[in-house]
Design a protein around this nucleic acid. Structure first.
Lengths: 161, 161
DNA sequence: CTAAGCCTTAGAGTTAACTGTAAGTCAAGC
DNA sequence: GCTTGACTTACAGTTAACTCTAAGGCTTAG
């Protein structure tokens, strides 16, 4: 069966040997074997496992939690329920992340349009009227905590939305 | 016009006052004004700007790059093109992130199914046959770099995919 | 008038996840 | 046999993004 040195495995996974050694130290790779000389060698199944680890990492799962999962894997069938629950939870996390990314996308697209129009007009001022209108609607009462007098009265305001 | 103290603004944005002061120190909030006593007060428009900053942050944009954008905003119409380009680039980034999240989701769902079946069977062994078959297909040649003899011959392999 | 509860700054500490260094081992090629 | 280049460990350093501490200031309630 084909095996890989740490450098080859790192290339395969788009990581560095440093990172793989770090993962090993953190207990993420108890399955990786060594030669008699102490050199790690990675099997296909190890790369598969690392791809799962990378997948979990891409859901912003911290390395310590991934280690818990790896420990469960080592414990065998007794931990099937925990592992199932963990993936269900991950699924919910990813769904949330997708919803938030979609919201982000909408804002970004709105800004693209904003700047497309501003560029066409040669100035951001084309958006000024809309801004003033919007601000007026929320312009109703002072904060009870804002009792101190303000300095720097009416600077040319930055426009960010 | 209603204004907010740093604590109120933080609550509004789901951040801490520490974080907002940190952003200010990093130059992300040159638009936030102060009372004569030096206390920051946040206007609606400042909260809007901070929401954009949070949006950019959610695309994994580092704070230093966000500062560049804020500086461009302060520079006015001369930087419209840069800002437009920046948002186009952000859009591409988010599209990539969405594609990757979708791939992640597929793997997670596959694992959910894997564990649903294993739980029903009471053991992960139900997936063993498939695993062996799959491994055989890639079981064709030794790595030219794997010349050292292996220790720990045939442990019960962890199953992770 | 003083205590509570905000706010301020400078600067130190924390955390996660690497990233690199130093000193040494090992196998291959000249 | 010696150099090359990949590997090893232990451990120190880096980076980003906070997060907190200490010392102090301002405004309101009692």
């Amino acid at each position: 069966m084909k095996t890989y040195t740490i450098g080859e495995a790192a290339r395969e996974l788009n990581l560095t040997p440093y990172t793989l050694r770090y993962y090993d130290k953190e207990g993420l790779m108890p399955f990786v074997e060594r030669t008699s000389g102490g050199t790690r060698f990675f099997k296909e199944s190890d790369l598969e496992a690392l791809r799962i680890i990378e997948c979990l990492k891409s859901t912003s799962m911290p390395i310590k939690e991934i280690k818990t999962f790896i420990d469960w894997c080592s414990d065998g069938d007794a931990t099937l329920q925990q592992r199932f629950d963990m993936f269900r939870e991950r699924k919910a996390t990813v769904e949330t992340q997708m919803r938030e990314l979609l919201k982000t996308m909408q804002v970004i697209e709105h800004k693209c349009e904003y700047y497309r129009i501003a560029l066409a007009a040669g100035t951001e001022k084309v958006h000024r009227h809309k801004q003033t209108r919007r601000r007026c609607r929320t312009d109703q009462h002072e904060s009870p905590n804002a009792q101190q007098k303000r300095i720097s009265p009416g600077e040319p305001e930055l426009i960010l939305l």
